[in-house]
């Protein structure tokens, strides 16, 4: 009797389990798993919307790796990622160190508001404002530069400056995210160790480099990985500020992908570009897994 009840229970549990996971699994299969697999297959074809697919092997990848234009865009993306990640995390860390002290509650509320608001507002919205700030003749920034006697800067219209302008906006937008995460990490640094070190006369820099930095380094590592994955996919801020120009000087892989897919309808080639992006993200994720394993063991 008891035995039968137990097996009934197991069966009921099994049924319930499948029913509960079914909606999410079906949707996930339809909108993530199947599309990823199809994209990979597509990347080996020449695809025409009305005539279908022709198998072309590695041709799309060869084209990507040999065309000067795609290589420039590839390096643009890496360069943007490198700059954006370095500054986002570095500025975030400086802000976190500055904010990690006793202060009245309303100030803390204000700082969280000021530094985090840009994080949660879409770049699609704020980039429009920035494009006006950056404009050469009517722009707010050039106006103030002129007031203090500095020359006008062609923020978005020069291929030498445009990438820097985009990085500046990106840091304005995203650094608050890393600030918040790093504040949490700093608050985990054990107080007694810090106090003991300052009693022994360790300088502020020594305390930072010998105690704080090693203590928060796993979180710092997470920030870098996370920032890299986001930066490699950069899309809307560039789309709205420069559209990828002047020339290709600010074009990122995401923009290239959309241009090729929905502008030139080179769907097979666009699929290859997206697979290359996926591989980049995958490499970073693997580095993250290896890195965090190492820290856990230590």
């Amino acid at each position: 009797m008891a035995k039968r009840r137990l097996s009934d229970l197991r069966k009921a549990q099994m049924q319930a389990g499948y029913i509960f996971v079914l909606p999410s699994i079906l949707l996930y299969a339809a909108f993530v798993l199947a599309p990823v697999i199809i994209t990979i297959i597509l990347s080996f074809t020449y695809y025409d919307i009305s005539f279908g697919a022709d198998w072309v092997g590695f041709e799309n990848y060869v084209r990507f790796l040999t065309e000067p234009r795609s290589l420039e865009i590839f390096w643009n993306t890496l360069r943007f990622a490198f700059l954006a990640v370095s500054f986002n995390v570095a500025v975030g860390l400086i802000l976190a160190l500055a904010l990690n002290r006793a202060m009245p509650k309303f100030l803390l509320y204000f700082f969280r508001l000021a530094f985090f608001l840009p994080v949660i507002i879409s770049a699609a919205f704020v980039a429009v404002v920035w494009s006006y700030f950056y404009s050469v003749d009517f722009g707010v920034i050039n106006y103030y530069l002129g007031q203090i006697g500095l020359p006008q800067v062609p923020w978005l219209s020069s291929s030498k400056v445009a990438m820097t302008s985009i990085v500046i906006m990106d840091v304005w937008k995203n650094t608050g995210f890393f600030m918040i995460i790093l504040i949490a990490a700093l608050q985990g640094v054990p107080r007694p160790i810090m106090d003991a070190a300052s009693m022994d006369g360790a300088s502020a820099w020594r305390r930072f480099s010998r105690i704080t930095l090693p203590f928060i380094s796993p979180v710092l590592f997470f920030c870098i990985v996370f920032a890299s994955i986001g930066a490699l996919q950069v899309f809307e801020s560039i789309m709205i500020l420069t559209g990828g120009g002047p020339g290709d000087s600010t074009r990122s892989l995401s923009i290239y992908l959309v241009d090729e897919a929905f502008g030139s309808f080179e769907l097979g080639y666009a699929a290859a570009v997206s697979v290359i992006m996926m591989i980049l993200v995958l490499i970073i994720t693997i580095i993250q897994i290896i890195g965090s394993r190492r820290w856990v063991r230590e």
Partner: peptide, 14 residues
């Protein structure tokens, strides 16, 4: 792990 860019083309075609 999959960025939105890897799923968009088949979704578009579908």
């Amino acid at each position: 792990m999959f960025p939105a860019q890897v799923t968009i083309l088949p979704i578009y075609l579908g």
